[in-house]
Each structure stands twice: as C-alpha cells, then as structure tokens.
Nucleic acid binder design. Structure first.
Lengths: 123, 123
DNA sequence: GTCGTTGCAAAGCGTTTGCAGCCTA
DNA sequence: TAGGCTGCAAACGCTTTGCAACGAC
C-alpha cells in the first residue's frame, strides 16, 4: 500500500524537472531546498522505489557515481564529457531500432547508447 | 618509473583472458589462485593503473558493481541479461561509426552500446 | 487508529590510503 | 642499493538498515 507524501512529491519533481541525470546527492540537495530536514535515507528509498517501478532509470558511466533520470519511455542517448565529467541527455538523435544485432539466442528488449568526447564548454 | 612484477602480470592476464568484463573482486579471486596472499588493494591499484593507461576499460550498468575488460582498441557492444545480471561482450556486430549524432558543439571521440534483455540461458 | 513513511544514527560494503617491509632493476 | 611495489589494516564515502516518532488515509 503506497501513500502520497510531500517528500516523495518533491523528490520526484526534482528528478523530473532536472533535464539531465542526477546523482543521489544532487537529488537530495535539490529536494532539501524545499524540505530542509529531509534525510538522505529517504532520498535513497524513493530513488529505489521509483527505479523499481521504472519511473526513473539509472545511467552509469565508468569512474562516476550512479545517476538517475526521469524515464519518459523512449530509449535515450547520453553524452559524457571526458573533461568536465558532466553527463548530457541527447534527444531525437536516432531511430528506435537497436544499433546493433545480438547473436542467436539473445533476446533484445532495450538498449542504451553512450557517446564520449568533449562538450561545447570544454571543447 | 614502472616495474615489472608477478602480481601485475597475473592480474593483467586474468583480465585479458576472461573474455568478458569482470568485477574487481572477480579479478582478485582469479589472480589469487596463482598468488594466494595477493591483497585486494594491489588488485585495485593495478586496475586503476591499467585503466589510466587505457589497457583496460570500465563497463558499468545500473545497479551492478563496476566491471573491467581488456581494451583491444575497438569499440564494443555489451549485452546485459536482466534475469541473471551477467554481462556479455559482443563482437563484430556493428560498424565503426557512432550510431547517433551529437548536437553542434559536442565532439564525439568514442561510444558504447549496451543492449538489455535475456541471454540464451535465461530466455 | 492503523500502518506506511520519515529522520536519525549506526551498520555495511566496496574502494582507497598509510606504512613498514619486500623485491625489481 | 634505491625506490617502486606489496600486504595488511585502518580510513573513507556512499548506500542501506534499525528503530521510535510521525502523518496519511
């Protein structure tokens, strides 16, 4: 049985309006502006729940803390800047078909593409 | 000034011959079979060094510990099984050109593709 | 009033660091 | 022999868990 709370509302909204993947601590900081006494554990608990219900998805890239972003249903393309380590969400840059075929026996259900390089600011 | 040691040799060989991305602990376990008193710290130190010299590359996917694999120069496609959580390295499944274009200002230097689904064993 | 949710603090875990002894070049 | 490398244990930072108080329904 799930209940509606102000904490859950604020945390979800922080992720939803960010426009880019956020770390748990970034999410907690943002949400703390509206709920000063918000605990980290609560943030983590909501991220976990939202993640399990597929409302948010995790985006990882090597050597960096995990990040989470709003799952709007479509497969995304991400861009990781090797200089400043920021992560960007790119949109409308590719079709809906996986860019690679898997060998016989593998059932492909989804995919993700990560581009590496220099962002406009660092390039 | 870098020196050649048995530990470094064994650790590198473990990654090189695995054929799939390994977690630091898997690497440590494999290497420990040849050097029983091998410390975890040594394993981590070598992974870090190899990673910085681009001899091995990190492969992450959400909710899983980081993994490392031998970098043979070509961009790879990985397959993550949602059932057993194993990670596979697929080969020769796509061209060398990035599957997506980045907006003006972004300089693309490399890319990675991750497919999600069911592996032959779990499907 | 019930029972899921919260904040806090402690525990857990993977990774890193300090250090004295070891070993390669 | 010099100085990098190693094993061990302590330290660290992020995440999870235990628990009593709180608040949604």
């Amino acid at each position: 049985m799930k209940r509606h709370t102000r904490q859950g509302e604020v945390i979800l909204s922080a992720i939803k309006t960010a426009g880019r993947p956020l770390t748990p601590l970034e999410i907690h900081e943002l949400a703390s502006k509206k709920i000063p006494r918000l605990g980290v554990a609560t943030t983590y608990r909501h991220i976990k729940t939202l993640s399990e219900s597929h409302q948010v998805v995790g985006v990882d890239y090597p050597g960096q803390p995990p990040r989470y972003e709003w799952a709007d249903g479509q497969d995304k393309v991400h861009f990781a800047c090797r200089a400043c380590d920021k992560l960007f969400a790119l949109e409308d840059t590719m079709e809906d078909t996986p860019p690679a075929k898997a060998p016989k026996g593998f059932k492909v259900q989804g995919f993700e593409v990560m581009l590496y390089g220099m962002c406009p600011e660092c390039g």
